[in-house]
Simulated scan of single mutants.
Amino acid sequence: MKRKLKLLIPTIITVFLAVLILKEPKTTIPKSIKEEVGIALGHFPELEGIPIEFKFKKNIKKSVMQAQPTWSGLIKPKNKRSYVILISEKFKISGAEFKTADVPRDVLIGWIGHELGHVMDYQQRGNLNLIGFGIRYVLLKEFVKKAERAADSFAVSRGMSNHILKTKRFILNHSEIDDTYKARIKQYYLSPDEIMEMVKEQDSLNDNGLL
């Protein structure tokens, strides 16, 4: 029995990998957020043709949204990768639950834009580097800060500063949003002042014809 199992394991692994590779990924968007996702994606022409599945999930620990490569994407060249952006169905304000899809439109677009910033970051990494990224993100707080600020920076550099700012202010200025979540935003993400400074620098470069 053990010998048969040992013989079967390579076959099972081969079939599993074949399913991952042969399954044709595609961009899928829930109808309830289709317009907001479309607006956010419009700021990232580099991601055109990259399959991204936007998927609601019952709950995401410590986050409202989460971008990650698919398993099949980790064994393909980066120009053939696909991604999934998980979106928590609900979040809490003062103990009461609200549907994420019901937050103000510009705030939702900003949240999505930040996650697309992560995808931009992932697209610049090789497969082994991306696997290492995931390990460091789980283990190192300083790396989390670096990754989240990079995602914000990608979104701001693609013209999403207004949406990103509205998302930050919605979280930080909402008196009933949990203080623990606010503290995480302050610790790991770009502040509104830093975003405004980035915008000024970009405007200065544009005025001087350097961008």
Score class of each variant (00 low, 15 high):
143 F>W: 10
150 A>I: 09
128 L>F: 13
141 K>I: 09
171 I>K: 05
99 K>H: 10
20 L>D: 03
69 P>A: 03
75 I>M: 13
125 R>M: 15
73 G>L: 01
49 G>R: 10
118 H>Y: 10
84 V>H: 04
187 Q>M: 13
126 G>S: 08
176 E>D: 14
135 I>E: 04
197 E>G: 00
98 F>D: 03
43 H>I: 04
9 I>V: 15
207 D>C: 04
108 L>I: 07
46 E>T: 09
199 V>N: 04
5 L>E: 11
128 L>H: 01
198 M>H: 07
157 S>D: 12
201 E>I: 14
36 E>P: 09
159 G>W: 01
44 F>L: 03
92 K>N: 12
120 M>R: 07
21 I>E: 02
120 M>G: 01
201 E>V: 14
136 R>S: 12
12 I>M: 12
137 Y>H: 05
5 L>F: 11
209 G>D: 09
49 G>Y: 08
34 K>C: 00
65 M>I: 01
142 E>N: 15
187 Q>E: 15
130 L>C: 06
78 K>Q: 13
63 S>G: 04
144 V>L: 05
158 R>P: 02
191 S>P: 09
98 F>A: 07
58 K>S: 12
183 A>H: 08
124 Q>T: 12
201 E>D: 13
22 L>C: 09
193 D>E: 15
203 D>H: 08
69 P>T: 10
14 T>C: 13
200 K>N: 14
122 Y>T: 05
42 G>Y: 04
189 Y>S: 05
47 L>F: 06
42 G>D: 07
183 A>C: 01
34 K>S: 14
65 M>D: 01
39 I>Q: 08
116 L>S: 04
8 L>T: 06
56 F>E: 07
186 K>H: 10
31 K>C: 00
202 Q>E: 11
70 T>A: 05
145 K>Q: 14
133 F>Q: 08
125 R>C: 02
142 E>T: 11
149 R>Q: 15
15 V>T: 14
88 S>G: 15
145 K>T: 15
18 A>G: 06
10 P>N: 10
42 G>A: 08
67 A>T: 09
76 K>C: 01
156 V>N: 00
119 V>K: 01
186 K>D: 10
147 A>M: 07
177 I>S: 02
89 E>C: 03
147 A>W: 08
180 T>E: 15
147 A>E: 12
14 T>S: 14
189 Y>R: 07
153 S>V: 00
91 F>R: 04
59 N>H: 13
117 G>W: 01
3 R>Q: 11
205 L>Q: 14
162 N>K: 13
122 Y>S: 02
206 N>V: 11
75 I>K: 06
8 L>W: 08
146 K>L: 13
41 L>E: 08
136 R>Y: 06
136 R>V: 08
206 N>I: 14
145 K>Y: 06
145 K>I: 12
65 M>E: 06
92 K>A: 13
50 I>P: 00
